[in-house]
Amino acid sequence: MKSHATETAPLDPDSVLIVDGVFAFRPEIDTYWDFRIWMDVDAELSVRRGAERDRNWAGSDAEAIHRDRYLVAEHLYLRKVDPLPRMDAVVDNTDFARPLITN
Rank of each mutant, 00 (worst) to 15 (best):
L45V: 15
D12Q: 14
A43R: 06
P27V: 04
V16D: 08
S15L: 11
I29N: 01
G50Q: 00
F25I: 10
R48C: 11
P13E: 07
D34M: 15
L17C: 07
R55F: 07
V19T: 02
D14W: 01
D61R: 13
D14A: 12
P13Y: 03
D42F: 03
G50E: 05
R49A: 01
A43I: 10
D30P: 12
W57C: 13
V47S: 08
R53G: 09
E52Y: 07
D40L: 15
S60K: 14
G59N: 03
V47D: 06
V47L: 08
G50R: 02
I18P: 06
E28Q: 01
F23G: 04
R26N: 10
R49S: 02
V16A: 11
D30C: 11
G59E: 02
E63Q: 09
W57D: 14
N56V: 14
A64R: 12
I18D: 04
R49H: 03
D30H: 03
R55Y: 10
W33G: 09
D34F: 12
F35C: 13
R26S: 08
W57I: 15
L45F: 03
F23Y: 09
F35R: 14
M39P: 14
N56L: 15
A51Q: 09
Y32E: 13
S46I: 11
G21A: 11
R48H: 09
D14R: 12
L17N: 07
F25E: 08
E44Y: 04
V22L: 10
I18H: 01
V47Y: 04
G59I: 00
R26H: 00
R49M: 04
D42Y: 04
S60F: 08
W33Q: 08
